[in-house]
Simulated assay, not measured.
Amino acid sequence: MCKELNLEYLSASQLLKWDELNKDSQNKKVNNILVTQNQLIIGLKNVIKNDQNYLLDGHYCLLNKANMIETIPFETFAQINPINLNIILGNIDEISKRLQDRDKKIYSVELLQKFQDHELLHAKQISKKLNINLNIGLFNDYSKIINSIHTKLAKP
């Protein structure tokens, strides 16, 4: 997607230096969401160039240390100031398998479904509040997202 749209790919986890924030980099639970989001903003400010467009890969929600779903604060998105929002929805069974392969941990299908539902709801709320488009794609089908971003970038 980035190559096709001439976007620089940025990973939220890499920008906030997840492996430095968490002794166990496979543990995706967040101790303090505000701290991590402040670190993300600092990371963005350190790498963003005015003459480049970016795709920031991250989440709209995170799991806290109590394994509860928490939304990323609206202020984080306001500071990022995106031209649009994107979310890719996937098959929960496939997501579960990928997470198990990647993290060597088992997440319940119910938790993953609830997480995806919360992310979509929060993305819609942020989109409305920021008055920007939300592109919804499906795993392995990013065509709507690509077309929407291409149109947005083509406008002066």
Rank of each mutant, 00 (worst) to 15 (best):
Gln14Phe: 10
Ser127Met: 01
His118Asn: 14
His59Gly: 02
Leu16Tyr: 14
Gln52Arg: 14
Lys29Trp: 12
Phe77Asp: 03
Asn140His: 09
Glu110Thr: 15
His150Thr: 10
Lys3Tyr: 12
Ile42Gly: 00
Leu63Phe: 15
His122Ala: 03
Leu15Ile: 09
Asp117Phe: 08
Asp117Pro: 00
Thr151Trp: 01
Asn140Tyr: 07
Phe74Thr: 11
Ile132Arg: 04
Ala66Trp: 06
Ile41Asn: 08
Lys17Glu: 15
Asn6Gln: 13
Gln100His: 12
Asn81Val: 00
Glu75Arg: 10
Asn46Val: 03
Leu99Met: 12
Gln125Ala: 07
Asp93Asn: 14
Glu70Leu: 09
Lys105Ala: 11
Asn53Lys: 13
Ile145Asn: 07
Leu62Arg: 10
Gln39Ser: 15
Leu63Gln: 07
Leu7His: 05
Ile42Arg: 13
Asn64Arg: 07
Val109Trp: 00
Asn27Phe: 03
Phe74His: 05
Asn32Arg: 11
Leu40Phe: 10
Ser96Asn: 13
Leu85Ile: 08
Asn64Val: 05
Lys124Gly: 08
His122Trp: 14
Tyr142Trp: 06
Lys97Leu: 12
Gly58Trp: 10
Ile69Asn: 03
Gln26Trp: 01
Leu138Val: 11
Leu85Cys: 09
Ala78Gln: 15
Leu21Asn: 14
Gln100Thr: 11
Ile95Phe: 02
Leu121Phe: 12
Phe74Pro: 00
Lys105Gln: 15
Phe77Ser: 06
Ile83Trp: 02
Phe77Ile: 05
Cys61Arg: 01
Leu5Lys: 09
Leu55Arg: 01
Ser11Phe: 05
Lys124Met: 10
Leu134Glu: 02
Gln26Met: 12
Lys129Leu: 10
Ala78Asp: 12
Tyr142Ala: 01
Phe139Asn: 13
Lys128Met: 06
Ser25Leu: 08
Asp141Phe: 02
Tyr60Ser: 07
Lys97Gln: 13
Ile41Val: 14
Leu63Lys: 09
Asn67Trp: 07
Thr36Trp: 08
Arg102Val: 01
Leu62Gln: 14
Ser127Val: 01
Glu70Ser: 06
Gln14Ser: 15
Asp101His: 09
Ala123His: 05
Ile88Met: 11
Ile126Cys: 04
Glu70Met: 10
Cys2Phe: 05
Asp101Gly: 00
Ile41Pro: 04
Pro73Phe: 10
Cys61Phe: 05
Gly137Trp: 05
Arg98Tyr: 06
Asn32Met: 05
Asn6Asp: 15
Asp117Thr: 13
Glu119Asp: 09
Ser13Glu: 15
Leu130Trp: 02
Gly43Trp: 06
Leu120Ser: 06
Ile145Phe: 01
Lys28Ala: 03
Ala12Asn: 01
Leu130Lys: 02
Asn64Leu: 03
Phe139Ser: 11
Tyr60Phe: 15
Lys28His: 06
Val47Trp: 06
Leu21Asp: 02
Ser148Glu: 12
Met1His: 13
Gln125Gly: 00
Ala12Tyr: 03
Leu153Pro: 01
Ile69Glu: 03
Asn50Cys: 07
Asn53Ile: 00
Asp51Gln: 09
Asp93Lys: 14
Asn131Trp: 00
Lys17Ser: 13
Thr76Asn: 05
Lys129Arg: 10
Leu56Asn: 07
Ile69Ala: 07
Lys45Glu: 15
Lys65Pro: 00
Leu153Phe: 06
Gln37Gly: 06
Lys114Arg: 15
